[in-house]
Design a protein around this nucleic acid. Sequence first.
DNA 1: CCGGTTTCCGGGACCGCTCCCAGGACCCTG
DNA 2: CAGGGTCCTGGGAGCGGTCCCGGAAACCGG
Lengths: 337, 337
Amino acid sequence: MTAEAPRRQPTLDEVAERAGVSRSAASRVINKAPHVSRATRAAVERAVKELGYRPNRTARALATQRTGIVALVVSHDDPELFADPFFAQVIVGVSAVLEDTDFHLLLCLASSGRGRSRLVNLLHAGGVDGVMLMALRDEDPLNDIVSKAGLPVVYGGRPVNFEPRWFVDSDNLGGARLATEHLVGIGRTRVVTITGQLHTRVGEDRYRGYREAMVMAGLTPYGMAEADFTEAGGAEAMRALLDRHPDLDAVFAASDNMAAGALRVLNDLGRSVPADVAVVGFDDLRLAGLTDPPLTTVHQSIQALGKEMTQALLGLIAGQERTSIILPTWLVRRGSA
Amino acid sequence: MTAEAPRRQPTLDEVAERAGVSRSAASRVINKAPHVSRATRAAVERAVKELGYRPNRTARALATQRTGIVALVVSHDDPELFADPFFAQVIVGVSAVLEDTDFHLLLCLASSGRGRSRLVNLLHAGGVDGVMLMALRDEDPLNDIVSKAGLPVVYGGRPVNFEPRWFVDSDNLGGARLATEHLVGIGRTRVVTITGQLHTRVGEDRYRGYREAMVMAGLTPYGMAEADFTEAGGAEAMRALLDRHPDLDAVFAASDNMAAGALRVLNDLGRSVPADVAVVGFDDLRLAGLTDPPLTTVHQSIQALGKEMTQALLGLIAGQERTSIILPTWLVRRGSA
DNA sequence: CCGGTTTCCGGGACCGCTCCCAGGACCCTG
DNA sequence: CAGGGTCCTGGGAGCGGTCCCGGAAACCGG
């Protein structure tokens, strides 16, 4: 129970000496390189076991120019933003993949200028082998910082103003279209939408999906209000829309949180859902199952996004060209539409 | 916009050469060591600027035996567990402190055996300078793994079966006592509790706080049901308690999630809250403000916990003895009690 | 003017590992 | 049995820094 004497970890030299071979030979068996006799291998393996040897990560990193660390960089001006369960899901996905590799995850919440300059240092100082970037606002300085670093980069989601070389994104456009088509399919014609911030790609895509579906159905987009993906924002937008279009009969909210806000307002105002107004959300958060009525919504798999990002990045690090990926989304029918 | 030619980063030698001084001298000015002439300093600083030099983290780490990385290790058998907003808050706190330092955060979700052995490697191979550990189940193998590593360790929360040398924890005991005292204070006498898992320290402490407050008030604990901190678990426990003690007039739920479940059951069964049954939760999650009625609950600051853990760890790494910390909790009155 | 500090400087060992390379042992042909 | 492979092996030069140490230069009071 008392703390072990902080004995220095044994080095490769010590292993080699104990095994009666050269450091090179020891290194070879440890790295499973070829051209090692059975005898040498056995001797070294024994020495390793007896000494409890572990190759020093730092030394190895210096020699190989590989750290075995990948960074997940999250842009967040508002520290609360990270609290969104979205990121936790991404991290779970990322970790699941890394768990089967020798890579570890460095988490970087870069907000302030100070935080950004730390990031610049980290990337230019060979601190990581690659980065997964989630910087979804337009004009995010992180985009520049990271691209200058000359490291493999995979985007999670896409920025508005340019299309990264490699990214993984959910099919927001298709999902929004699905949602809208569903509303039209059940006979609604006066369908409005509550969008997320339109200066984000995801906000834009989901809005576009809605419009496209409406047009394709021969309808005109009936109304829209821009909100911020939050419950409160959704509620406010819903009020505004009811004000402007009292006869609306369906709403597509670009997030479950906003849909929940909308639902709250509709309930409060005595509009029955889905009879008077049908509602569809987006994301399929846990919350979607708990609203009243349960929310029909578009499912996206955020863990899968994390996994794919990671696999893509590891691939790039290993020198394989990979193609960007758009993950499918699909409709989950519950009570609200 | 095209990828920069992957020019190698300049090395210290190149800086030294350009500045016309030795590597030692260059190193000195970069590390702001004393005994450097103004001329040398200026020359080196100029060379650094011109070359865009950044000291290589890995090389420095090898030489100094310091990586500049701290690990946050989260034990989670269930990958979903990490999705709890709790961890996101911790991370936000940790990052906030780290942002003003040169340390970076390595996030380690260790579940499977594979994940654990990776962790062992990481810790014994000098991959990090210290660890913050959140392993709250009893008998968690991580406790052992980490203690054997001979690294500075700070616990977030406490394990059940032993008291770590350094930890940061919320005052769960005091908070639970406060909650219960409040219920008693508003005249309730048949107060039951819904606990979290009693094989966790937090579950135990909050249960103990309840009992102590009851006894101190001259009442006997009226009933309890063990749940798992989740909404569903809370609901089920509530039903069981109503079954066993139909005349209960108050319930202290050891988490907001469980309180929300309890509330749902009470509403469904037509018991009015707080008139018939008063309810107090614990955590003060966002959700507490959104239930019907809004939840009276015990507030704990999870970001603060992350911050304190980090400060404690950085202190230990710097060689300062620090004392463990218990963070205050307090009651937030809303409608449910 | 001269010993003794103090300030500044560069040489070089070291951190712990990888990997190239030259060379010895061994095997197999013709 | 000469000659050309393989298969192993150890030596040693790196990766890019830090830091100790001895010595040169500058400064000082007596």
